[in-house]
Computed example of a mutant assay.
Amino acid sequence: MTTTTEPREGYARALIELGHQHDDVFVLDADCAKSNYTNRFRDEFPDRFFNMGIAECDIVGTAAGMAALGKVPFANAYANFLTGRGYDQVRISVAYSGRNVKIVGHNAGTSAAQEGATHLPLEDIGLMRAIPDMTVIVPADSCEMEKAVRAAYEFDGPVYLRVGKLKVPDVTTADTPFEIGKAIRFREGSDVTLISTGNMLFETLKAAEILAEKGVSAEVLHMHTVKPIDSEAIAESARKTGAVVTVEEHSILNGLGSAVAETLCEKYPVPLRRVGTKDVFGLSGTMDELMDYFGLRAEPIAATALEAIQAK
Score class of each variant (00 low, 15 high):
5 T>W: 10
15 L>A: 01
18 L>A: 08
20 H>Y: 13
45 F>M: 05
53 G>H: 10
56 E>I: 06
56 E>P: 10
66 M>G: 07
71 K>E: 11
72 V>A: 15
76 N>W: 03
86 G>H: 12
90 V>H: 12
106 H>P: 01
106 H>C: 02
113 A>Y: 00
115 E>M: 14
117 A>H: 14
120 L>F: 05
126 G>P: 00
133 D>G: 05
136 V>R: 12
138 V>Q: 03
140 A>D: 07
143 C>G: 10
152 A>C: 12
153 Y>P: 08
154 E>H: 15
166 L>Y: 11
166 L>E: 15
180 I>D: 08
189 G>M: 09
190 S>D: 15
191 D>K: 01
194 L>Q: 07
195 I>Q: 07
205 L>Q: 05
207 A>H: 05
212 A>N: 08
212 A>G: 13
217 S>E: 13
225 T>S: 14
235 A>V: 05
240 K>A: 06
240 K>E: 03
246 T>W: 00
246 T>D: 02
252 I>K: 08
252 I>S: 02
254 N>Y: 02
257 G>E: 09
257 G>T: 11
264 L>R: 06
268 Y>C: 15
272 L>T: 00
274 R>M: 11
274 R>G: 00
277 T>N: 06
282 G>N: 05
283 L>P: 06
287 M>D: 02
288 D>R: 05
292 D>S: 13
292 D>A: 15
296 L>D: 08
299 E>A: 15
302 A>S: 07
309 I>D: 06
